[in-house]
Computed example of a mutant assay.
Amino acid sequence: MPRILCALPARTWERIMTAELATELEELGEVVPCPQPEVLSESEYAALWLAADAVLTGWGVRPPDAQTVERLERLRIVAHAAGSVRTLPRRLLERGIVVTTARSAIARTVAEYCLLSAILLLRRHCEHLGRASAADAPASETLFGKPVGLVGFGCVGRCFRDLLRPFDCPVRVHDPWLSPVEAEAAGVIPCGLGETLGKSRVVSLHAPDIPETRGMIGTRQLGLLQDGAVLINSARGRLVDTAALTEELASGRIRAALDVTDPEPLPLDHALRRLPNVLLTPHIAGPTTDDLPELARLAITEIRRCLAGEVPLHPMSLEAYDRMSF
């Protein structure tokens, strides 16, 4: 019988697992729980990985050390019930072990957040709250037909693009890894960063947090945004120069929805918390409470397919690993 190490910390297990899904996992093999990996010694934790045919990981996972990874002979798959796998050693992939991600299950809810934010900010919803009359209300806009710019076109960017289809929005994309064939199939216009920022009424950031992208949106880039434009960041706070963004938003020239910031969380007295043109949320764009079990469901599906000799649905390549956010 295959042995399945559940390397999910107790707090993660409780968030994403249901009784039904736990039963499905148990039907695949002998499940070895590890609810408190932090209390185990290196040798004790290594022994669990070395004896596993499959490992279920997720938020808060304790990765195996380098020596353990080199000794893995039995392990066939690491199914990560979360988005970025950068917490796991790259060497797992180099050794030919399948590593899968549940980012597709996360992408749809983040895209939903982006759509919600775009509409709320264009409609000036927050500025209307508490008003007794619309007589002196600020001018609002519809999303229908508005040009949208996506900086990055990974899972979330593609999901957001799909949600925009009913609104007939022309969509520009800046992504150095987007091929012309992919752009045509998705119905988007590949552009440089400057054109994407300058010709869009709504700009949504979906680039990964890697050394090449940190601080990619600074004073010069923010200055390219149209007056009254909406900037959405549900990706990573380090993509944006916080000081420059704060200054631009304080001028009132643009509006922003920020689910991520740098630092995160922002200090309680930070200026961004007091601006009326900022929709600030505490990194909640990802899975809603009721949707969290989808992460476990997808990871269990990956384990089932691998143990049955089938091709995984969402395997990571070395190239994709290197382009994934930290």
Results as ranks from 00 to 15, higher is better:
299 A>K: 11
61 V>D: 10
82 A>M: 10
85 V>P: 09
249 L>C: 06
311 V>D: 13
43 S>A: 11
189 I>M: 04
270 H>N: 03
263 P>E: 00
28 L>C: 06
248 E>H: 00
240 V>H: 10
157 G>R: 08
251 S>K: 10
77 I>L: 13
188 V>R: 06
181 V>A: 12
98 V>L: 14
191 C>V: 07
102 A>P: 10
291 D>R: 15
25 L>S: 14
183 A>K: 05
15 R>E: 07
157 G>Q: 03
259 D>M: 02
115 L>I: 06
316 M>E: 13
59 W>F: 14
305 R>W: 03
68 T>A: 01
188 V>K: 04
189 I>L: 13
38 E>A: 14
165 R>E: 07
55 V>I: 06
248 E>R: 02
5 L>K: 03
223 G>M: 05
208 P>V: 05
222 L>T: 00
23 T>D: 13
172 R>Y: 09
254 I>W: 15
233 N>K: 14
241 D>P: 00
36 Q>V: 05
298 L>H: 15
72 L>M: 10
238 R>K: 13
246 T>Y: 04
23 T>S: 15
187 G>P: 02
274 R>M: 04
121 L>Y: 07
150 L>F: 08
60 G>M: 14
229 A>E: 08
164 L>P: 11
63 P>C: 03
95 R>L: 08
231 L>A: 04
298 L>C: 07
224 L>M: 13
229 A>V: 10
20 E>S: 15
264 E>M: 03
102 A>S: 11
200 S>N: 09
251 S>G: 11
212 E>R: 06
152 G>F: 06
221 Q>P: 08
202 V>L: 14
309 G>A: 12
316 M>P: 09
118 A>Y: 02
24 E>H: 15
199 K>R: 12
193 L>C: 08
275 L>C: 03
262 D>V: 15
160 F>I: 12
44 E>F: 12
160 F>T: 14
151 V>L: 05
148 V>K: 06
295 L>W: 15
